[in-house]
Design a protein around this nucleic acid. Structure first.
Lengths: 222, 222
DNA sequence: ACTCTAAACGGAGAAGCATCCGCTTCGACT
DNA sequence: AGTCGAAGCGGATGCTTCTCCGTTTAGAGT
C-alpha cells in the first residue's frame, strides 16, 4: 500500500507545498544516528551484514524506532541511497552538459546512462538490496519516476516516432542492479565495456531514425 | 556458492552423461508430494502464502526435508517453474516456426519475446518471487543461459556487427518479472501493448543494420 | 536374508523481519 | 512555567527462513 515516494524523491522539483509536517528533533537525531551507523556497517561489512535488529542495537535504540523511521528494510536502503540520488538528479537536471541541459538529446541520454553506470559501480549491492526487498518499489520510487521522465523527454526529442515512455523503461531495465552485478561478477565486464554496450544500442536508435522523422527538433540536416 | 543450474536447466540439450546419481525413491516421492502441495497453495492463495514451514507442515514432512529437496525459497520457486520452462525450451529449440527453427532470425526473436511475455502473463509472480529471493540466481540459472544462448545465436545472424551476448542480456532484461508486473499493474499495459513495444525495438535493430553489414548471411541485397 | 553406508529425514534452535501497544517526550499554545 | 496532544520510543512477541545434527531408511552388494 505504502510507497517510497518520499525517499529518493523527485522532491528536487517540488515546490515547498505541504511539507509533510517536519520531523521532531529527537526523530531527526535518531534518523541521522541510524543512517550514520548503517553506513558504517555497510562500509565495513557489506550490505548483507545490515540487519534491522543489529542496526537498532548498534545505534542504541529500539527496533521499533528503526521501523518507524524507515518503514522496512527496503526503506532503509532507499534512505541510504538518497544523498547520492539527490546529487545525481541535480547534475542531470541542472548541471553542465552533456549530462545537464544544453547538449543534444542523444548525447544527454548517453551521459545519463554512463553516469548511472558509474553510480552502480559503487552502489550496486545497495541498489540490489533495495530492489529485492520491495520488488515493485523500484518503479514506484520518486527516483525511478524522475529518471523515467527525464529519459522520456529526451527520447521524445530524439525519436518522436517511438513510444518514449516504453523506451525509457527499457533503458532503465538495462540499468537494473541485478544485471549490472551479473555483468561485473560473472562476465567480468568493466564499466567501460558496459558503457560501450549501451552506446551501441543508442547508436542503433540514432541510426534507425525514420528518414521522414526530425532527428532533432531544430538542428538542420547539414 | 551453489547455483540453480539443475533447476530450470538446459538439460534438454545435455546428453545423459553423469546424471547426478538418481534420487532415492523416498526422496523422489517427497519431491513430488511437496511440489503438488506447493502448486495447490500457490493456485489457491498466491505465491505470498507459500512458506517453507507451511509447505512442510501441509505435506506432512519436516522442514529439513523441504530444504534438502529445494535448497531454499528460490529453489522451490525455480522447481515450480521447471515444467513450463522445459516445454518452452522444447518449443523454441525444436518446435515449429516462427518460434522454432526455420524462420528468419528476427522473426524467431520476435516470436521468442512474444512467447516469453505470454509465460510471464500467467507466471510473473512466481518469477518475481524467484528473482527476489536469489537475485543473482536468475542469470546463473540454466534457463537464463539457454535463453541467452538462443537469442545470441539468432542475433549474431541478424546483426553480426553488434555484440550478440550483450544484446541478448539486454533483451532478457526487458523481460524481467519486476518490469512486467510494473507495466501490468501500474501502467495497465496489456500483453499486446508490451509485445508491440518490443516489436518497435526489434524494428529499430532491423532498420539500423549497417549498410555494409550483411543482414542475413546468405540473402542477396536485391 | 543380512549388512552396511550414503542418503534422507525431522525438528529444535538461531537469527532476522515486522508489528503492536503501553509509556515517554517534544514543543506549540497558553 | 504549565498543559496537553501528537509524535516518538522501545522491546516483547510472533512469524519466517535456514542450519545443524542425531536418527532412520533405502537399496546395493554379498
Amino acid at each position: 500500500m505504502e510507497t517510497y515516494n518520499d525517499q529518493l524523491s523527485g522532491r528536487v522539483m517540488l515546490p515547498v507545498l505541504g511539507q509533510p509536517a517536519a520531523e521532531r528533533s529527537d526523530a531527526a537525531r535518531n534518523r541521522q544516528a541510524l543512517l550514520a551507523v548503517a553506513q558504517t556497517i555497510v562500509a565495513s561489512s557489506g550490505v548483507a551484514a545490515l540487519s534491522m535488529d543489529g542496526l537498532a542495537a548498534q545505534a542504541g535504540v529500539g527496533v521499533g524506532t528503526v521501523y518507524r523511521r524507515f518503514k522496512d528494510r527496503a526503506g532503509l536502503a532507499y534512505a541510504l541511497l538518497d544523498h547520492g540520488e539527490r546529487r545525481f538528479q541535480e547534475e542531470f537536471l541542472f548541471g553542465s552538459p552533456p549530462l545537464g541541459p544544453g547538449a543534444p538529446p542523444i548525447a544527454r541520454i548517453r551521459a545519463f546512462l554512463h553516469a548511472y553506470i558509474d553510480r552502480l559501480d559503487t552502489q550496486a549491492e545497495l541498489h540490489l538490496f533495495a530492489e529485492c526487498h520491495a520488488p515493485t518499489a523500484r518503479f514506484r520510487s520518486g527516483a525511478y519516476q524522475t529518471h523515467r521522465a527525464h529519459l522520456a523527454l529526451l527520447l521524445t526529442q530524439a525519436r518522436p516516432d517511438i513510444s518514449a515512455n516504453y523506451l525509457a523503461d527499457a533503458l532503465l531495465a538495462l540499468l537494473g542492479a541485478g544485471l549490472f552485478l551479473h555483468q561485473r561478477r560473472e562476465l567480468h565486464l568493466t564499466t567501460n565495456q558496459m558503457k560501450a554496450g549501451l552506446d551501441q544500442l543508442l547508436n542503433c536508435l540514432d541510426a534507425a531514425t525514420e528518414p521522414n522523422a526530425t532527428r532533432t527538433l531544430d538542428a538542420e540536416r547539414h
